[in-house]
């Protein structure tokens, strides 16, 4: 039986616990001495336990937009990356546009999308999709191009065609890159979804934060912030589990 209580295991567990403990103490000190800045943890927990249904229903709205955006943005990025690997013209044409999209602040796009698509879920899905697109595009491109020349030689010496090289070599070889991209993209989609809900809607975690600001309700604000952070961690965990199941080498 393997010993779980090795020095490195204890350190790995203890180190973050110490940091979290210090952060908690610091937080509580600020909460007790500067009440307008941070609420005590007890109040935040009580607020959440008081109306969990309210928070989970709003969280679900945000997560839905994030997941749909992640799926659309991620799949578009992978399809484009595949085309860009095979067509130099497309790569030259699309990279500047993708870079421009990446440096444009999402908050600046949101109002324009609300004007264009109205007060519904579409603007939030688009913002989440745009946020998810770039990290996936860059990782997918790197993965699909990261084929060893010597392995390619083995395939070419057998006259493997493009489809065979893609499905037998490029695609499976790019899986580790695609999963790295997915972890970045799903977090970005979640952030995009929350931020886009700062305007044009009364539902979602972003809207909950804005509502809490209006009524100076610090407890509500921090419940919403913690919920979105924990949800992002859970989503990354789910992607990691799928990665572990699929990549065994």
């Amino acid at each position: 039986m393997t010993n779980l209580f090795t020095k490195s295991n204890i350190l790995r567990l203890l180190a973050p616990l110490i940091v979290f403990g210090l952060l908690y103490l610091g937080w509580q000190w600020v909460a007790l001495n500067l009440k307008s800045i941070l609420p005590p943890f007890g109040n935040i927990t009580a607020e959440f336990l008081d109306r969990p249904g309210f928070y989970f229903s709003n969280l679900w709205v945000t997560v839905q937009a994030a997941l749909i955006g992640f799926a659309i943005g991620g799949i578009s990025a992978i399809v484009l990356a595949i085309l860009m690997v095979y067509f130099d013209f497309l790569r030259a044409a699309i990279i500047p546009v993708a870079l421009l999209l990446n440096v444009t602040p999402i908050v600046a796009i949101s109002p324009a999308l609300i004007v264009a698509f109205g007060f519904n879920a579409i603007p939030h899905i688009i913002v989440a999709g745009l946020a998810a697109f770039f990290p996936m595009l860059i990782n997918a491109m790197s993965g699909l191009r990261a084929v060893e020349k010597e392995t390619l030689d083995v395939f070419n010496a057998m006259s493997a065609n493009r489809t065979e090289i893609f499905f037998r070599l490029r695609l499976p070889g790019s899986l580790p890159y695609l999963f790295s991209g997915a972890k970045l993209s799903i977090t970005a989609a979640m952030v995009g979804s929350v931020v886009s809900e700062f305007m044009g809607t009364s539902k979602g975690i972003g809207a909950t934060i804005v509502m809490a600001t209006t009524f100076l309700n610090l407890n509500q604000m921090w419940v919403a912030i913690f919920l979105s952070a924990v949800t992002s961690l859970v989503l990354i965990g789910v992607v990691s589990l799928v990665e572990k199941a699929l990549i065994r080498w």
């Binding site: 060893e148 030689d153 083995v154 006259s159 065994r248």
Partner: peptide, 19 residues
């Protein structure tokens, strides 16, 4: 010859597919 798969290429590194 390559189209007929009549050439086997063994490179410097093993170039095995890790999966």
């Amino acid at each position: 010859a390559s189209r007929l798969k009549n050439i086997a290429w063994v490179p410097q590194s093993s170039a095995l597919l890790p999966w």
